[in-house]
Design a protein around this nucleic acid. Structure first.
Lengths: 218, 218
DNA sequence: AGCTTTTTATAATGATTGGTACTGAAAGAG
DNA sequence: CTCTTTCAGTACCAATCATTATAAAAAGCT
């Protein structure tokens, strides 16, 4: 009873996400949003509240639609596979061209006006959740013997996130997926190696030449 | 012959830099600038042109005042020292609290409205110059035998920049200098090693246990 | 002293911004 | 059919934005 909504709320949300992803929060005007969604101002307000609530609904949408790789990565059976899955998913999402480039969260989390600072802080908090999840996963890997005993899991989680942020910056600047993938390979190749169980240093396969004592000395 | 300017142009520029560094270009209003500089609108226009020209004068100021470490790093005698100097300088500048956090260039280079896109592209171009300088420096290091023959200098330059961008993001989000320094140590420890000249693997100092053949096999 | 030049400070300007008011249209119930 | 509810579309609103206009003040010259 009453007129039915003509536009598809989910489609409008996807369109809004795409604009926010590209321009960030402050760089996106309400006019941009009405143009991209094809919905007039009151329609968007009626469906989503206001610009800020729409923004966070879009970010949530980004999370559920595009960040599944993170949960998949954290569920991988070993640390190396987890990190690989993470970065592969990351560079795939961050080099999408039709929908967005870089990371929608990062694109709003760097600098803004004083009035928008609370929004930025919320985005930073989301990044922090991801870093914490990595630290927990790495600590589990450490306990399971996948990482050298001296591994600083907080540092390594911070490192992984720093690299990911940097890849996001480069993706937003136009870097190709292939060039980002090469960086990912380097990162994977330089992850702390699993400690060896035995000391047959001269007969073990090549990776066994990586001795934990070298890192302990640091 | 005429009234003398009462404000110090350099001090005003420093104040403007600080605001742009914190809020980015679009997040900084002209009101923010007049407040921070203590100079009225016409005075700022008279001295600097308009908001955009002031922004780039501020970025140039950032370059000359704070990015000397980059030139110093590129002038270091060996690659390892160069990279170390680079990151040490970077995390020092990016964790300054009074003046700014993160990187003033990066803070404006991620996302913005359509009208501001040319400004963003200019900032991206500056980042690209730095990455190119690193690639050239690494290629020189490769020729001088400091890096394994298989080293992909473009990839490594991209990697260094990605890490640096990521450190900037984390610094802007409030990370401490010490936590960034730990990440830097990890990066330095995982740089491609100089190839050994001889094969006295059992008597050389510890770093010599890093064999180029391991990277070649990758 | 008056005159000219340049800066300071306040006010004004037109455009843009996020949000709301209002009217007509659509949908369903009785 | 009328009535009620809800949406669509246009117009409107107050605040903000970068920039300019204007009048007064300061500085130096004659």
């Amino acid at each position: 009873m009453g007129r039915h909504r003509e536009f598809d709320v989910d489609k409008a949300l996807d369109a809004a996400l795409s604009v926010f992803w590209k321009n960030g929060y402050e760089g996106t005007s309400f006019e941009d949003l009405t143009r991209a969604t094809g919905v007039a101002r009151p329609g968007l307000y009626s469906a989503f509240g206001n610009k800020e609530t729409l923004f966070f609904k879009a970010i949530d949408r980004y999370d559920t639609k595009h960040l599944t790789y993170l949960r998949e990565a954290l569920a991988e059976p070993d640390v190396h596979s987890a990190v690989r899955r993470f970065f592969e998913g990351s560079i795939t999402v961050q080099t999408l061209n039709g929908e967005g480039r870089g990371c929608a969260v990062l694109n709003g989390a760097l600098a803004c006006s004083t009035e928008t600072e609370p929004i930025r802080q919320e985005l930073i908090a989301r990044q922090k959740l991801t870093e914490d999840a990595w630290r927990v996963r790495l600590e589990r890997g450490l306990q399971e013997g996948e990482l050298p005993p001296s591994t600083n899991c907080a540092m390594l989680a911070g490192y992984l996130m720093a690299v990911n942020h940097g890849l996001g910056v480069q993706a937003k600047a136009g870097a190709s997926k292939a060039s980002l993938a090469a960086i990912v390979e380097h990162v994977l190749a330089t992850l702390p190696p699993a400690p060896t169980k035995k000391r047959d240093a001269h007969q073990a396969p090549l990776p066994s030449h990586r001795r934990p004592s070298r890192r302990d000395a640091k």
